[in-house]
Design a protein around this nucleic acid. Sequence first.
DNA 1: ACACTGACCTGCGAGC
DNA 2: TGCTCGCAGGTCAGTG
Length: 268
Amino acid sequence: MPELPEVETVVRTLEHQIQGREIEDVAVRTPMILECDPDQFRKTLIGQHFRTFERRGKYLLLYMDSVLFLSHLRMEGKYYLQAPEEPLDRHMHVIFQLDDGRQLRYRDTRKFGRMNLLPMDTDLLTFHGLGPEPFWDSFNADYIREYCKGRKEPVKSLLLDQHFVAGIGNIYADEICFACGIRPGRSCARMTKKDRENLVTETRRILTRAIAAGGTTIRSYTSSLGVTGRFQLECMVHEQKVCKVCGNEIRMKWIGGRSSYYCPHCQH
DNA sequence: ACACTGACCTGCGAGC
DNA sequence: TGCTCGCAGGTCAGTG
């Protein structure tokens, strides 16, 4: 569920909570969460401090003293800051003991999330083949036109393609299509110049609003609250029954293996 | 080269 | 009540 705005919220919350803290110990209870050797992971992180906090697409980038700690929450990954006395449940897979006595706990019911350690100088521009961030100048109408050359896939699938643009998931993809008045199943080859321009502005507008909404929750974080974002923005179409603009019934269609919600009256 | 499908996981809710 | 089944979704490997 975490998409770009939620990951951004998690990054900023962690920055606020644990910047400068040292990792005293690491317990890896579920090795499959790691993309590297668990012993190596533990040994490398012990003694390192959390220095700077960034995001690229849906990846959390935690820069330590001499290593880049990478975390992807996938569907249900969450971080908790808790006291060691608080009980662990069976979904808490990686525990970081901090030098202030607290523990940073990674919880993930479906074990889809992944962690890795990479060199500090890892090139994040081309990292994992990720496309531009929605807020980069390089994500513009001309870029979309070039990317779509020779492609016929649905606009919805395009938005979910992390090589096209980084950070958008199923919920925001539906919302962006609605905001643009484009049916999610329409071929990207049939977008007009105006559609491409709208896609850029509406993507940025919706993500900006969602980040702002997520950001407002940061103030209320307590030490044990899950550092995560549920969807902060009120959805216009995703999982809705009735269109909030025209009152028509919202339809659900299977596009690229994803449930896709749209208003047949407002979107063409 | 592009497009589509299944696997990875687990919890939950619908239906019988 | 208790079981099975399908669905949720991000990413990537595999296939057409």
